[in-house]
Amino acid sequence: MTLYERYLNGETEKVYEDIHKLGKNAFLPDTIFDIEKVLTETFERVAFNLDIIYKELVEMNYLFKTDVQFNFERPLIKPLPQTDQLLSELNEIVKPFGFVPTSLKLFYKIVGACNFEWDYNTNEDFIWECADPIQIIRSHLVYC
């Protein structure tokens, strides 16, 4: 059974462990395709769940930032049409230091970005003390 089939059968944590154990072998041609399928499914689930979380927060009158100047300030940003081009540019920027992880590339391609930060400028009384917002923004993939 492939990693992807096992993942779909509910062995999510075990599949992640097995991928981790592969180390550099995870990038071999006979394994990378299966791993990319697992990551694609993972981020499709992330996108689905973030949509639900966002809708529920809106229902609860969660105060997202309303005075938005930049895309990264919006609660959810679906993948931009030029994501592949922007990732290519990011690859060139980080090339001297390493590479952009496959998981991050797929996150940007499938999920986009999210910023569930409370709008403290409008209301300092955050409704959940000690709660951390979900924030995964495209700082290198930002434009208005």
Results as ranks from 00 to 15, higher is better:
residue 46 V to R: 01
residue 7 Y to N: 13
residue 134 I to D: 02
residue 109 K to R: 13
residue 5 E to D: 12
residue 80 L to A: 09
residue 133 P to W: 03
residue 3 L to E: 03
residue 76 L to H: 00
residue 42 T to C: 04
residue 53 I to L: 11
residue 64 F to E: 02
residue 58 V to W: 09
residue 82 Q to V: 06
residue 88 S to T: 12
residue 134 I to Q: 02
residue 1 M to G: 05
residue 140 H to P: 12
residue 54 Y to K: 13
residue 88 S to I: 01
residue 54 Y to G: 07
residue 117 E to C: 09
residue 57 L to F: 06
residue 139 S to R: 10
residue 104 L to W: 06
residue 35 I to P: 05
residue 128 W to L: 14
residue 80 L to K: 14
residue 64 F to T: 02
residue 134 I to N: 02
residue 144 C to Q: 14
residue 4 Y to D: 04
residue 127 I to H: 02
residue 4 Y to F: 15
residue 38 V to P: 05
residue 79 P to V: 05
residue 2 T to N: 15
residue 131 A to L: 11
residue 58 V to C: 11
residue 70 F to I: 13
residue 124 E to V: 11
residue 84 D to A: 14
residue 138 R to D: 12
residue 110 I to R: 04
residue 8 L to F: 06
residue 63 L to G: 01
residue 40 T to W: 07
residue 141 L to E: 01
residue 34 D to A: 06
residue 3 L to C: 03
residue 36 E to P: 04
residue 116 F to L: 00
residue 122 T to A: 11
residue 26 A to G: 15
residue 92 E to G: 03
residue 136 I to E: 08
residue 34 D to K: 05
residue 5 E to S: 11
residue 87 L to V: 11
residue 16 Y to K: 09
residue 48 F to D: 14
residue 40 T to F: 10
residue 68 V to L: 10
residue 42 T to Q: 09
residue 35 I to A: 07
residue 113 A to I: 05
residue 108 Y to P: 04
residue 85 Q to H: 10
residue 131 A to M: 12
residue 81 P to M: 04
residue 108 Y to V: 12
residue 60 M to A: 13
residue 87 L to P: 09
residue 52 I to G: 01
residue 122 T to G: 02
residue 91 N to L: 02
residue 82 Q to C: 08
residue 21 K to A: 12
residue 137 I to K: 12
residue 74 R to P: 00
residue 68 V to F: 03
residue 30 D to I: 07
residue 16 Y to C: 04
residue 106 L to Y: 00
residue 73 E to N: 05
residue 24 K to R: 12
residue 138 R to W: 08
residue 43 F to G: 08
residue 26 A to F: 12
residue 16 Y to F: 15
residue 64 F to A: 06
residue 63 L to R: 05
residue 32 I to K: 13
residue 78 K to S: 14
residue 114 C to W: 00
residue 17 E to V: 09
residue 119 D to H: 00
residue 66 T to C: 00
residue 21 K to W: 02
residue 54 Y to D: 11
residue 108 Y to A: 12
residue 21 K to P: 02
residue 109 K to Y: 01
residue 70 F to G: 01
residue 107 F to Y: 15
residue 70 F to D: 12
residue 106 L to N: 01
residue 54 Y to F: 15
residue 133 P to R: 03
residue 8 L to R: 15
residue 18 D to W: 01
residue 109 K to F: 01
residue 49 N to G: 03
residue 74 R to E: 10
residue 120 Y to P: 00
residue 63 L to Y: 00
residue 24 K to E: 14
residue 104 L to Q: 10
residue 79 P to S: 06
residue 82 Q to H: 12
residue 99 F to W: 08
residue 3 L to F: 13
residue 61 N to R: 13
residue 72 F to Q: 14
residue 62 Y to K: 08
residue 39 L to V: 05
residue 38 V to Y: 04
residue 92 E to A: 14
residue 129 E to R: 11
residue 45 R to V: 06
residue 58 V to N: 07
residue 141 L to W: 02
residue 119 D to W: 00
residue 91 N to C: 06
